[in-house]
């Protein structure tokens, strides 16, 4: 085992992850000007970094082509699958919320409501737990449009500040789940390279919690 390979979620989470890595003492220079390259090597730690979309991070880790991944809990909740979810990194924080048009009474009817979401599984599960029948409609882009256009009674979506919702006359009425980025590990990789992976996990954990795990 020479180098670990980790898949990072592209976009805003990547910047926060780089800050975390730098606190761990990793030299992230190659990531500042990635150009079109998708794989980068950390010069002072045996780690290669792959940049991918969130759901792809899960796929790469599950198939074992990346040993570890950093991905939002939103993708994990939506896609499930099997791997170790070892740490809550406390970055990329936001929440899944149920939002409706201002002034509408979402629960005040016996009609089956229609919910638009980019996350149909999360949505279905949320209402299943409530014992409520809803019809879930998958929307890929700006979900806020669906209630405005009259396609849906409500949406389930990621909410950070709520500005986009407010700008479109929607208000969050209920939290569905709290979201943050997680460090995930391929199951056989953890067993085949425990020293290397636990070293990385503990460095992460030390930075997040400020103290190393007390070892017995």
């Amino acid at each position: 085992m020479s180098r670990l390979r980790i898949a990072l979620t592209k976009g805003r989470l990547k910047d926060e992850t780089m800050k975390l890595f730098e606190k761990m003492g990793l030299d992230c220079e190659p990531l500042y000007n990635p150009g079109r390259r998708l794989i980068h090597s950390i010069p002072n730690y045996p780690l290669d970094i792959v940049l991918a979309k969130g759901p792809d991070v899960i796929t790469y880790v599950e198939h074992g082509v990346c040993h570890m991944g950093i991905v939002g809990k939103d993708s994990i909740l939506e896609l499930g699958r099997s791997f170790y979810e070892v740490l809550d990194l406390g970055i990329g924080k936001c929440r899944f919320a149920l939002a409706v048009q201002e002034g509408s009474d979402f629960y005040g009817t016996y009609k089956t409501r229609r919910i638009a979401s980019k996350y149909p599984n999360v949505t279905r599960e949320f209402f299943e737990k409530k014992g409520m029948d809803v019809s879930v409609i998958r929307i890929e882009g700006s979900v806020e449009l669906a209630p405005i256009l009259g396609l849906a009674d409500a949406i389930v979506d990621l909410v950070e500040t709520g500005d986009t919702l407010r700008a479109n006359g929607l208000i969050p009425i209920e939290d569905v789940a709290q979201i943050s980025a997680r460090l995930i590990v391929n199951t056989p990789a953890m067993k085949l390279y425990p020293t290397e992976i636990l070293d990385f996990v503990e460095r992460c954990r030390t930075v997040i919690q400020g103290t190393p795990q007390a070892s017995a």
Binding site: E85, V86, L87, D88, V185, V201, R205
Partner: peptide
């Protein structure tokens, strides 16, 4: 059951 599930995920901190 929640502990078992965290244990299975090796979700150390949780």
């Amino acid at each position: 059951e929640q502990m078992r599930s965290y244990l299975e995920q090796k979700n150390f901190a949780a």
